[in-house]
């Protein structure tokens, strides 16, 4: 499975979003992506990519697009 598929899969399992919905997902605008949902998203991202996110990255991870940029710092290419 490619990284993009894996990334989309996390948004689908956590928020129940289709690929098209996931690509426009934004913190607080997407249903269930509030602070409780964010904790769930971050734990699933860490598990899916076997990484340990830094605190600043967890705070900055506020949209699908921003998340891709952040993950690239961990060597995850899309």
């Amino acid at each position: 499975m490619g990284n993009l598929e894996k990334y989309l899969g996390v948004f689908e399992s956590v928020f129940g979003l289709s690929a098209a919905e996931a690509e426009t997902a934004v913190f607080k605008s997407t249903r269930q992506w509030d602070s409780v949902g964010h904790v769930n998203l971050m734990t699933n991202i860490e598990e899916a990519f076997d990484i340990s996110l830094e605190p600043d990255d967890i705070l900055d991870f506020r949209s699908f697009a921003m998340g891709k940029e952040i993950l690239s710092k961990y060597g995850i290419a899309f």
Partner: peptide
């Protein structure tokens, strides 16, 4: 505040800040 109705005598918690702090 963070999706809930509350008054200023209640505990306000910034979930993301607390999460990133705790796990670190």
């Amino acid at each position: 505040f963070e999706g809930k109705q509350m008054h200023s005598m209640q505990t306000h918690m910034k979930g993301m800040d607390v999460f990133s702090f705790g796990i670190t």
